[in-house]
Design a protein around this nucleic acid. Structure first.
Lengths: 138, 138
DNA sequence: GCTTGACTTAGAGTTAACTGTAAGGAGTAG
DNA sequence: CTACTCCTTACAGTTAACTCTAAGTCAAGC
């Protein structure tokens, strides 16, 4: 099975060696092996674990919480329930983020239309209501 | 038209007075008025502008870029094109974020199933492939 | 008239997640 | 042999976005 240096692993994951060393320091790579010369040797399984770590990061999970999960993984079957619950919670978090993103998109799209109309008219005044004494263009 | 103190505005927007002062210091509230005593007086239009600011923040826009937009708003109709382009770009950003969130969700859901199965079996070994010498539980 | 509470400023401190520096080691090309 | 490149550690520096502190102002209630 081929292995990867920290630079190769970084490239494969679109990260930097700095970041990978930082993850290691924070305890996110407990199983990482070293060569006789002390150089980190990333296996395919390490890259897979890092992909999960990046996935959890994308859900907004802080690194300390990810470390808790990594520790659970090292604990074996005793922590299956915690890990299951964690992913269920992450699922709920992502669902909420999706809903929020939809709301955000709705506002952005309204603004796109607003500025499309203003651009066609050549002036934002086209949106001024007669009853509004003052409006903020933002 | 009723106005709001910084504390009231913060509550209405689910922010803190510290944050609103910080935004002001960064130039995000150029039109904010003050009472004779020097106290910030938020109008409805200021709250609306802040809602747009919060919306842009949710798309991951840094505060310095939001300030650029706020400055454009003060510039009047000359900047309509820039503002339109900016919202189009934000729309593309949010679409990309949505796609990424869908990918993330897919991974999370696979892990939910993985741990559901493991939990039913009482052990993660249920997922071990015969050809795999070693796997990372993450 | 005095206390209370919310407001003001300038500026310092915090946090997360990197990001870079310095000093040095090891393997490879010429 | 020597230069080059990548690796190592320890630790300092950076950045964004707050978050708080200190010292002071001001209006309202008792």
């Amino acid at each position: 099975m081929r292995t990867y240096s920290i630079g190769e692993a970084a490239k494969a994951l679109n990260l930097t060696p700095y970041t990978l060393r930082y993850y290691d320091k924070e305890g996110l790579l407990p199983r990482i092996e070293r060569t006789s010369g002390g150089i980190r040797s990333f296996k395919e399984s390490d890259l897979e674990a890092l992909k999960i770590i990046e996935c959890l990061k994308k859900t907004g999970m802080p690194i300390k919480e990810i470390k808790t999960f990594i520790d659970w993984c090292s604990d074996g079957d005793d922590s299956l329930r915690q890990r299951y619950d964690m992913f269920q919670e992450r699922k709920a978090v992502v669902q909420a983020q999706m809903q929020e993103l939809l709301n955000t998109m709705s506002v952005i799209e309204h603004k796109c239309e607003y500025y499309q109309t203003a651009l066609n008219a050549g002036t934002e005044a086209v949106h001024k209501h007669t009853h509004a004494k003052e409006t903020s263009p933002a």
